[in-house]
Design a protein around this nucleic acid. Sequence first.
DNA 1: TTGCAATATATAAAAAACTTATATATAATG
DNA 2: CATTATATATAAGTTTTTTATATATTGCAA
Lengths: 114, 114
Amino acid sequence: MISSDLLKGSLKTIVLKLLKEEGPMHGYAITRKTEELSGGKIKLTYGAIYPLLHKLKNEKMLVTASEIINNRVRIYYALTPKGHSLVDEKIKELKEFIDSIQLVIDPPKGISYA
Amino acid sequence: MISSDLLKGSLKTIVLKLLKEEGPMHGYAITRKTEELSGGKIKLTYGAIYPLLHKLKNEKMLVTASEIINNRVRIYYALTPKGHSLVDEKIKELKEFIDSIQLVIDPPKGISYA
DNA sequence: TTGCAATATATAAAAAACTTATATATAATG
DNA sequence: CATTATATATAAGTTTTTTATATATTGCAA
């Protein structure tokens, strides 16, 4: 299980990327899928995921469609065009971040700025 | 320049790792070195770095030694044994995190849990 | 048939981390 | 003389996330 500190800041990126790859999803399914894909390492909390989805909808990054399955409400979230652009941007940022942080915590041997 | 959202949560790991690799450093030097190693991509702010150093000292992860250079105070921070254990733990977590998040944003082809 | 686990969403209160702005002080450079 | 670099500090505010709680249905097992 990943320290939740590290998850901060990448939650939004994970959610957006999943919606891009999998198509419209509801909040509960997003937490399930993330857990699956990460082999149980990443667990999103509902207190984080639902407010985030509401916020992204407010910002016009997502739109919703409701459905009733077995007398239970499901709210599917789908990317808007604006949301699609945001995913691409966020993924780029995340990859840059991973590269940069690896340079810091594991500098290539032979390179020294001292 | 990396989105500051992503930096949240890994700031502590960066600082601890640098102290492990480079030996005792002062706050200003930590920000400089991080910028250097990341090729200018990661810029730590003083409002984040100094409170963090104080906190880690409070928690007995770091000890300090002051020095006067050119009439300016420098406060060197060094890892305690407890701090050394924390670095190892944090680095392990960070690597696990990077692996996990890559599984989520870029799942290996052919693998599906659906 | 009762209770628990899974499904599904929601929100309030609190904590934590970080940004922004500000303050102070010296030295070097143009 | 003004700006940039060095060096630390902290208060106020924002944002994000955790924790806790609430609601409701379905399915399974004891």
